[in-house]
């Protein structure tokens, strides 16, 4: 019997998800033994045309990481969707836009203007130039992908079967997912989140929690935190309560507040709004001015509450004005 076929792809992301796959260490050999890897640009030399030539639904499993930032990401997403039986949004970027999604806080114009013209390290001639999607060279024409205005999650572009959250997904969770698929057990319902639980980060966090009342917020560098006490109780904005568990509460173990990479827990549509609702509930002030001054202590609310989920939040991006 032929081995099941596996494809992996890296769209707009840092590549950490690919490393995470390798972080399952020697088990990668089991993966190689169990699967016939047919597409993995970062590790093996495959051409898009090879995949395009394959029959539809001929790939059994595709782990797709990275958000959709440009026309190439989208093209491959559509291609992998067509060729794969099971398409998995792998990692925060594919799942909900991730860090690249923060680009939705600004515009393509602003980004280009900075990157190609105004950043201090850029040397410009004649006021600088932007990359052109189509340019003519003596040797012929060159086409490069077009960068989109808005960063999208994978499921905003193509139909996704399963989601594996995390920035990056934890190796043991990855192995768990692969092992499950290899076991031949019936697959979960479409749209399921794999490699994570239904609870929140607090469930795995070992810190002692109290009933909350907050008068002041701190940034992590501002105070010496108690390693055994809930960071939120100590005034550190920790996204743990509004973040799906599965990572093993890695960050809080390292004395750093949860940043929300595993995305919203089930039933929550907007991680940022939920966290805002929760935090404002426990602020210990009734006077509008005092409330405003407490809120002022939270620097960069958009970046804090939507660090990973902006592109997949209810409003998705900042309105271009």
């Amino acid at each position: 019997m032929a081995k099941p076929k596996l494809g992996l792809y890296w769209a707009a992301s840092c590549g950490g998800c690919e490393i995470a796959v390798l972080d399952i260490h020697e088990k990668i050999l089991d993966v190689a033994a169990a699967f016939d890897i047919v597409f993995w640009p970062v590790a093996l030399d495959f051409k898009y045309s090879d995949v395009r030539a394959m029959e539809d639904k001929s790939i059994d499993l595709c782990l797709f990481n990275g958000s959709i930032r440009n026309s190439e990401n989208a093209e491959i997403a559509h291609m992998m969707r067509a060729k794969s039986k099971v398409l998995v949004a792998f990692g925060s970027c594919a799942l909900e836009g991730g860090i690249p999604g923060l680009a939705n806080l600004t515009t393509k114009d602003a980004i280009w203007n900075y990157v190609y013209k105004e950043s201090p390290s850029t040397v410009t001639k004649n006021g600088g130039t932007y990359p052109q999607t189509h340019s003519m060279m003596p040797e012929g024409s060159i086409d490069i992908p077009e960068m989109w205005e808005t960063v999208k999650s994978l499921d905003q572009v193509v139909d996704v079967d399963y989601y594996v959250p995390g920035c990056p997904p934890q190796p043991e969770q990855i192995w768990g997912v692969i092992e499950y698929i290899l076991s031949g057990k019936p697959l979960p319902a479409k749209g399921a989140v794999l490699g994570a639980t239904d609870k929140t980060c607090c469930d795995e966090c070992l810190r002692e929690r109290k009933e909350k009342k907050l008068k002041k917020f701190f940034r992590p560098f501002e105070i010496q935190t108690d390693p055994n006490e809930c960071l939120l109780d100590q005034g550190i904005v920790c996204m743990g309560p509004a973040t799906r568990s599965g990572c093993g509460a890695l960050c809080t173990k390292a004395n750093v507040p949860c940043r929300g990479c595993y995305g919203p827990p089930p039933n929550v549509t907007d991680q940022g709004a939920k966290m805002v609702s929760a935090l404002s509930s426990i602020i210990d002030a009734q006077d509008p001015q005092e409330i405003e001054s407490i809120l002022d202590q939270i620097v960069d609310p958009m970046g804090t509450f939507y660090r990973f989920s902006l592109a997949h939040s209810i409003l998705r991006r900042v309105e271009k004005s």
Partner: peptide
Amino acid sequence: EYCSGCKIC
């Protein structure tokens, strides 16, 4: 099944 005991409520 969804509560993780964050004690916000």
